[in-house]
């Protein structure tokens, strides 16, 4: 008797949960992966032996959008560049970030979003010497030796970093 009385709200909650989950999946039509304290190692492992570029950005950073526009053009001319995006905005606010990336044509790019409110730990997991300023870029050579840059990246810097010849025009 008691159990049947309890079951009803549980079922209701389950139903509501399934509905919300389905709704969230529709609303979040992006490819953001949740970035937590282990994600940086995961990204590095997936590019083992390869050069790659990491771009950190936020919707609350005007220069980041200038850089993303610049990178969109670079990637148009050099589509094979391994470029991974990490947004330092909370993944709960993914819709707005997704909108930006869609406008810039980054929908297919590997993209992460901070998924832990303890942001100091997330920043630390990437680079102990990073103060949090944005945009922030990291380049990894084939041995994964890391080079960093704060502020908008330039053509010169990208060419300095990548061993391949990049097209700029």
């Amino acid at each position: 008797m008691i159990s049947s009385r309890l079951n009803f709200p549980i079922l209701l909650r389950l139903a509501a949960g399934i509905f919300l989950f389905a709704f969230a999946a529709i609303a979040a039509a992006d490819n953001f992966k949740p970035f937590n304290a282990d994600s940086f190692q995961e990204i590095k492992s997936s590019y083992e032996g390869q050069e790659f570029l990491l771009g950190l950005w936020s919707v609350d950073c005007p220069p980041c959008l200038v850089e993303l526009e610049f990178m969109a053009r670079i990637l148009e001319l050099n589509p094979e560049i391994p470029y991974v995006l990490i947004s330092t905005d909370a993944i709960e606010q993914r819709e707005v970030s997704a909108e930006y990336l869609e406008d810039l044509g980054f929908t297919e790019r590997e993209s992460w979003m901070f998924a832990d409110s303890f942001v100091e730990r997330l920043r630390f997991s990437i680079d102990q010497n990073w103060y949090g300023e944005l945009p922030r870029s990291y380049f990894f050579d084939t041995n994964h030796a890391m080079k960093s840059h704060s502020g908008i990246v330039s053509k010169q810097l990208l060419q300095e970093w990548f061993s391949r010849t990049l097209f700029f025009e």
Binding site: S58, D60, C61, P62, P63, C64, V66, Y131, G132, E133, L134, P135, R136, S150, G151, I152
Partner: peptide
Amino acid sequence: WQIDACPHH
């Protein structure tokens, strides 16, 4: 501090 970025600070 030569930077074209947002320190939020």
